[in-house]
Nucleic acid binder design. Structure first.
Lengths: 246, 246
DNA sequence: TTCCTGTAAATTGTCGGACAATTGGACGTA
DNA sequence: TACGTCCAATTGTCCGACAATTTACAGGAA
């Protein structure tokens, strides 16, 4: 919280709003991986010009949430075990580092810890009450999960690092939502998140770093194993647990 | 290398060409940090439409090479010690990791090592013969430097990691070009690059990793110290501290 | 049938002009 | 000096148009 005067919420540019809208649809699963993003259709259904849609799509491309093939159009980024592995290995490198940075400066306030605690509890409730077979429930679970990671890393006060993590976590959302949905042997994240919080509270940066890294490595390994088991040899692209022709 | 028939060089989209053109100008220093990027001027001087220029600028924004302030226009990203520290700390995290990945799979071929060796030698020649007070000489030196790092990390075969490093190295170019230029107490990079290559050839991943990390940490620390000492008017916060390793 | 080829439809890439929205600065007044 | 108004410059967004390219399909040849 800054002590400065209140900042008014500026109306963001239309392009940003459109990009946010599409992103949200991807996060919720209404736009699954591979879904075509037709410029004219989008501009008509959103009531904006084609140019604005184009700009929004380019931004999402740079966030690697959509793929653009020249003269063929844009589509939601497709999934592959390889991409999953890359995302999780990078997160396993960067998130522990962020936590170490924050702890090295004793940056977690009492308020931060309370916030993390609340997020862990909320995650637990959602995981117990929700049905991961339902997109809306799964969306809530993933949102709580990502929020925990965001807050956890936020205190690093490392702007560029946070930018990278935001992108990686966005992509993580797509993977979890569209992979787990069809196979509900989902492991609960509440215990590990609880363990992370405890480690942070312990005040030992190296310990916390190790716990965070292990959590991410385990989650990544589990997801990748899963995807590879359900992928058909020779076909790398996987969408929503089904194999797409090449 | 695919065994398929030869791939013809596709004419890239105009937007990509324009973005590349502007990027090159930034790398060469003809567009220094803070330089305004006027949409109409650019479109007229490049002979393309304003929309194309806009798209190109958005891409460069997502690469954090230009800043866009709503209704005020775009400009080349400004420098700050903080940004320098962020860039180098991230590189110090990611490049050693890339080298470790590559060495763990024994991915460096004889050809790779020869290529790296040639780059080290070229760097040495440039550093000895060039005058770092001249932009064109400095540009060549930096290009050889970055090329070494690119090849060094390229064998990691980690697409997403390479994407991040490409962006970080692009920004590194801006920093070096526009900081060193005015203060020629430049440290020669040939010896450290030589040491890195030797470490890679030694076959010990942990050793190589450590050498790479030290090189980047040292370079970052030197640059940040430099910037803080010579803080220029118009720059924002100047915070103490040095680039920390892993 | 299967393979090839050429044509047409669909979609994106790029252009130019137009106007609204916003900003920064010049100007005038107290 | 301080303050409020007006104006010019620039970006944000829209529209319509056409070129370039890909894809689908129909039709012909082996």
């Amino acid at each position: 919280m800054r002590s400065r005067a209140e900042q008014f919420v500026r109306p963001p540019t239309l392009t940003a709003t459109v990009a946010e809208h599409i992103k949200e649809a991807i996060f919720r699963g209404s736009l699954p991986p591979g879904a075509p993003l037709h410029e004219v259709d989008l501009s008509k259904s959103l009531g904006v010009s084609r140019g604005t849609v184009r700009e929004a799509l380019r931004h999402l491309q740079d966030e690697t949430l959509v793929e653009i093939h020249p003269h063929q159009g844009a589509s939601v980024t497709r999934l592959s075990p390889r991409k999953a592995r890359e995302i999780y290995t990078l997160r396993a490198q960067l998130e522990p580092y962020a936590v170490r940075l924050a702890m090295g400066r004793s940056a977690y306030t009492r308020g931060d810890l309370d916030e993390l605690d609340a997020l862990v509890r909320r995650l637990g409730e959602l995981e117990r009450s929700g049905d991961p077979e339902h997109r809306s429930d799964l969306f809530e679970i993933i949102t709580a999960d990502m929020e925990f990671h965001r807050v956890m890393c936020g205190r690093s006060e490392h702007e560029m690092l946070m930018g990278m993590l935001r992108s990686l976590q966005s992509q993580t959302r797509i993977f979890i939502l569209n992979t787990i949905l069809y196979h509900s042997d989902l492991e609960l994240d509440e215990p590990t998140h609880r363990a992370i919080l405890t480690a942070i509270q312990s005040g030992d940066p190296e310990h916390a770093e190790a716990v965070v890294r292990k959590h991410i490595v385990d989650a990544g390994t589990s997801l990748v194993t899963h995807m590879e088991a359900h992928a058909v040899a020779g076909r790398e692209e996987v969408v929503g647990g089904r194999v797409q022709g090449g």
